[in-house]
């Protein structure tokens, strides 16, 4: 079983290669359990603020290459990848006690 650090070491070069043109900057990995109780890796891939990350083909390819690499090493845990773009406006709160700011 790979450690989170080992998965990160595997993920960052793949993401740099596939997602570098989209502005990929770094990743983080945390192992845990998904909503069904299955063991998994939860990976956040961060991009430079202002990047255009809406490229389904590249995002799917990056996770796919990582999953294939993990499988080749005998790792059965699935890599869930969230693509994070800092600096974007936060969504409006759904809490009725918080006033929505003017827009």
């Amino acid at each position: 079983m790979l450690t989170d650090a080992e998965v990160l070491k595997l993920a960052e070069p793949i993401f740099s290669k596939v997602l570098g043109p989209l502005g990929f900057s770094r990743a983080s990995v945390l192992s845990g359990f998904d909503q069904d109780g299955d063991k998994a890796f939860f990976i956040d891939a961060y991009f430079e603020p202002g990047s255009n990350i809406v490229n389904g083909k590249a995002l799917v390819e990056a996770r796919g290459q990582l999953h294939d690499a993990l499988t080749a090493l005998g790792e059965e845990r699935f890599p869930y990848v969230s693509y994070r773009l800092p600096g974007e406006p936060e969504p409006l709160s759904d809490d009725v006690d918080e006033l929505a700011p003017p827009h």
């Binding site: 909503q35 490229n55 969504p91």
Partner: peptide, 30 residues
């Protein structure tokens, strides 16, 4: 499946912004 589970059932603030959601839609289209 995982994201849908969070979106539909987790009452905590949804930690995904518009650009990140558009990236999810793009993956669904793919």
């Amino acid at each position: 499946i995982k994201e849908r589970h969070t979106a539909d059932y987790d009452p905590r603030p949804f930690a995904t912004n518009k650009a990140e959601t558009l990236a999810r839609i793009a993956q669904a289209e793919e």
